[in-house]
Amino acid sequence: MDNGTVRLILQDDVLTAVLSGEIDHHTAQGMREEIDFTVNQSKPKKLILSFEHVGFMDSAGIGLIIGRYKLMESLGGELVVSHLSPKMEQIVSLSGVGKLAKIEKGETNYDQANE
């Protein structure tokens, strides 16, 4: 089964979490723990959640976004969500999460960084 994994890239004050696989209640738990651990350690000014490599997401993905928004807010930082597929955007728009996090369509250049 295609489990959800997360790759974390810290560059200056920006932490990029590249999510991949399927996001549901089962897989979101591990992703959340990994992201929060690194956020609490490095206290970035900006957290980018990239959904480019996510093949499936249900409402657990929204929970993941809202939870990370609250965490970043408590640290005085900002949250950016990038590369949502049209289906994911449909769920995001139902949730109204767009009012909390900045939704970015364009490229993130994490691939050049640290590789």
């Binding site: 409402s59 939870g67 769920i91």
Partner: peptide, 21 residues
């Protein structure tokens, strides 16, 4: 929408998603 008894990480969107999809 947004009603949940599930605590912190639940958005309360499940039924709404089922209805709209």
């Amino acid at each position: 929408p947004l009603y949940s008894t599930g605590g912190e990480e639940r958005a309360g969107l499940g039924f709404m998603v089922m209805e709209s999809f």
